[in-house]
Amino acid sequence: MRLVIDGDGSPVKEEVISLGKEFHLPVVIVTSVDHYTRKEYPAFVQFIYVDKGADRADYRIVKEIQKEDIVITQDYGLASLVLGKKARAFHHNGKEYLIETIDELLMQRYLGAQMRKSGSRTKGPKPFTAEDRQHFKQILREVLQKSSSLRK
């Protein structure tokens, strides 16, 4: 099992890395070359850089993931592809994407895009707070604890 982050806009990279260390799991961060960093990371953290362009990181994540990996993304489209490969997917708000509900989320995304295209304004996401960060970390910690106890 690995923790895979859709890294271009993820506000929870450090929390995932912290949990990767705690549970001895590799962390893979897939991001555009626009987000290249020289920051030093522990050896269990791997960066995969992709060319600029819409969905490049998503396609690479789909190529990289394996059954039982956990993907962190806010992209419903990517989440649907991940679920199809028997991996798990979580939003940075801690909510797990599920096969049973992904179609509804994709439809909401489509309808929102149609509204914006016709000139309507839609509300964006609320600012990500320290409490949101802690909530995400607690949810993922519980998931990892349960997974590690099942593997023993």
Rank of each mutant, 00 (worst) to 15 (best):
G20A: 10
L140A: 08
V143M: 04
K126I: 00
V82I: 13
A87Y: 05
S149F: 07
D58I: 07
P125Q: 05
M115D: 11
Q74D: 12
F128Y: 15
G94F: 04
T37N: 00
L140W: 03
L105R: 08
M115Q: 13
D51H: 13
Y110A: 03
K152Y: 05
D55G: 00
D132G: 06
V4P: 02
G84A: 04
E22R: 14
N93Y: 04
L25W: 04
R60T: 12
N93P: 02
D75N: 12
K146A: 11
R116T: 11
E40R: 14
V62I: 15
V143F: 02
H135E: 10
Y59I: 08
S32F: 06
L81W: 05
H135Y: 11
T129P: 10
I72C: 08
V50G: 01
L25C: 04
G7E: 06
K123W: 02
K86C: 02
E15L: 06
S118A: 13
H135T: 12
T37E: 05
K52R: 15
Y76V: 14
H24L: 13
H24W: 05
P26K: 15
H35N: 15
S148M: 15
L150V: 10
I29F: 06
Q66Y: 01
A89G: 10
Q108H: 12
L83H: 05
E40Y: 10
S148I: 12
L150P: 01
E14C: 04
S10G: 06
R88L: 15
Q66V: 00
L111H: 05
I5P: 06
Q134S: 14
E22W: 00
S148K: 15
I29M: 08
G94Y: 04
I102N: 01
I99P: 10
R56W: 00
I70F: 02
S120I: 01
E100I: 03
K52Q: 13
D6S: 06
T101F: 02
P11T: 07
D75P: 07
Y36C: 04
A54E: 14
I99G: 00
I72N: 06
E64V: 15
G9T: 13
E64R: 09
V71H: 03
K137F: 01
D132K: 11
R151V: 12
I139R: 14
T129C: 10
G119I: 04
T73L: 11
L140P: 02
I29L: 07
K52Y: 08
S10V: 06
Q66W: 03
Q74E: 14
N93E: 09
D69K: 05
D55F: 11
K13D: 11
E64M: 13
L19Y: 11
